[in-house]
């Protein structure tokens, strides 16, 4: 039996491991959302955030590309109205909007046979269909992490791509090693998703995080 942490709590748990999250704010009202948007800078993305909410996109709980205070106010109202009693306590998360033509997925999972593992793959909506993923056992060395990147079949996504620079390998290695440290740090962590891990100007940015824990 496992439970998921909210996006905000997931990021809080992962914070000590140096993963590349955006500056973002957690608020309780539409008005606070507007203030948060002004603080982090437009455009922003607003998401409904709560412990029981794992797959926000599928439920329309992610509002992208909010360019004005009016947009943010309306998005805040809609998100809070969409919450159901099963969602428990909810808040609105406001973060700068980033866009990228490349999306990876990175994560960690406790394999029933091999114990903690780290995964890197091509992300986006076709991720599971393409299934270009590589796995290594945690703990991971930096050499292991470099070899993971090198082992992806879609090497064209790692190099220079559509006018964007090559993926910063050192930064991506740091993400993988951070995930390895995160899953080995706490026995009760069943899995960690950084999905998507966007590549913005070559740098990996985790715009979402989901930590799954084993219930004792």
């Amino acid at each position: 039996m496992t439970t998921t942490l909210s996006e905000a709590q997931s990021k809080l748990f992962l914070e000590p491991f140096g993963l590349p999250f955006l500056p973002e704010r957690l608020v309780n009202t539409p008005q606070q959302a507007v203030e948060a948007a002004e603080a982090v800078g437009f455009p922003v993305v607003a998401k409904l955030c709560g412990d029981a909410i794992a797959h926000k996109t599928e439920r329309g709980l992610v509002k992208l590309g909010l360019r004005t205070s009016t947009d943010v106010m309306r998005a805040g109202e809609e998100l809070l109205a969409a919450a159901t009693p099963e969602d428990g306590t909810v808040q609105v998360l406001v973060a700068p909007m980033v866009s990228a033509s490349r999306e990876l997925i990175a994560g960690a999972v406790r394999d029933p046979q091999f114990g903690p593992t780290v995964l890197l793959g091509v992300g986006g909506i076709l991720a599971e269909a393409i299934s270009d993923v590589v796995v290594r056992l945690a703990p991971l060395t930096v050499v292991d992490a470099h070899e993971m990147i090198e082992s992806l079949a879609s090497q064209t996504l790692i190099g220079e791509f559509r006018g964007e620079p090559e993926v910063n390998r050192a930064a991506l290695c740091a993400v993988l090693v951070g995930l390895s440290e995160a899953i080995t740090s706490t026995e009760s962590i069943a899995s960690i998703d950084l999905n998507p891990l966007m590549i913005v100007d070559g740098m990996p940015i985790a715009v979402d995080a989901l930590v799954e824990r084993t219930q004792r």
Partner: peptide, 16 residues
């Protein structure tokens, strides 16, 4: 095994 995560469903026995 870890049904809630994409990572879990992508990390098949063979990939591991």
């Amino acid at each position: 095994q870890a049904a809630a995560s994409h990572t879990g469903s992508l990390a098949t026995d063979d990939k591991v």
